[in-house]
Design a protein around this nucleic acid. Structure first.
Lengths: 181, 181
DNA sequence: TTCTACATGTAATGAGTTACATGATTAC
DNA sequence: GTAATCATGTAACTCATTACATGTAGAA
């Protein structure tokens, strides 16, 4: 159910196509939610059936036609109702790498370090990109009226990746120390 | 597919019942994976059919009968094959609270602060419990042969919650500053 | 010539959630 | 007397993933 509120939240700020919403998921929502484009398109269709959104099709000459979605009053009302009155579910994480880390005692130490080094690269890249995005969108910590949420969650993303990297360095040290003995 | 490797990883350390595996998920695996008991029992049945695990039923007088699962050679081989040769999937997070944070511009500032305060309590409690668990299991950072993984991931959990709390305090400051103006 | 961006979707399968079911014992 | 612990599961449902499908334009 929550995917729909993520989408309504984005639409409450700006009208958008399914494609654009997918891009926004990759850029900003990724810090706390994930969804495939197939899921997004399906949810948008369902929400329109239920009158939470409204769409208009725009013909384009060079590119495929697109469908621009807007949120309806009913949609916004349901979004607020969810935000204020529905219980907050516990967070759910699925981290494939940490799952492997939890079994590092089964594989050679050098191989374990390799996993961590590769994962460091990913997080370093993600951190750089998010920092750049933050500087472009909130120079010197200034944010617009309807950008408060994005400002707070992008900072969360940055801190999360930084903490990840620091843990990773610590874990590599532990492994190297173990490798020596 | 990954749930099965999480279970095989635990069974490779000790034989266990579905119930015990569920408890272990709540205690240690929670830092990087989540699963309901119904899912765990289903997966255990499937794995036994495929010869990855083996079970014996133990009759008990005071308590219900229980089924103790052990990992087979085939199961351990598949676990290693997955660990060393399968691509590492990207981590997936679903955080209901951060989803709400991303829409804080739609609700009153005091209400937003309430959400964060309540969430701080949860993370503080989790942090305390994990620290206590770590001290009991790895006093002064000493871990056993087959405990390396748990040692590394529990430290991840602690750092994650600490970073969460620090972000939370920062976010509350931002909101209070906004509330003043 | 191969990849990426643009743009939207269906169908099949796999994973995860919720509600229900049973029933004794022990701690508050 | 109420809740929690022990212990295992089925059935129905919702949600998420993967593979497939289409087709143009511009950049490397």
């Amino acid at each position: 159910m929550a995917l729909r509120y993520a989408l309504l939240g984005l639409l409450a700020k700006n009208e958008a196509t399914g494609y654009e919403l997918t891009q926004q998921f990759k850029e900003t929502v990724i810090h706390f939610w994930t969804a495939h484009h197939t899921q997004i398109y399906r949810e948008l269709l369902k929400m329109e059936e239920e009158g939470l959104t409204h769409s208009k099709t725009v013909q384009q000459s060079d590119y495929p036609d697109k469908k621009i979605y807007t949120i309806t009053d009913k949609g916004f009302a349901q979004l607020l109702e969810w935000m204020l009155n529905k219980p907050v579910n516990v967070p759910k994480l699925k981290d494939d790498l940490l799952l492997r880390v939890s079994m590092f005692h089964f594989i050679p130490t050098e191989r374990a370090i390799d996993f961590l080094e590769k994962s460091k690269e990913h997080h370093q890249m993600g951190l750089m990109m998010t920092k750049k995005w933050q500087e472009e969108n909130f120079p010197k910590g200034t944010y617009g009226e309807n950008e408060l949420g994005e400002y707070l969650t992008s900072e969360f993303g940055i801190r999360y990746m930084e903490s990840w990297l620091s843990w990773c360095n610590w874990a590599i040290k532990v492994l190297k120390k173990k490798g020596e003995s």
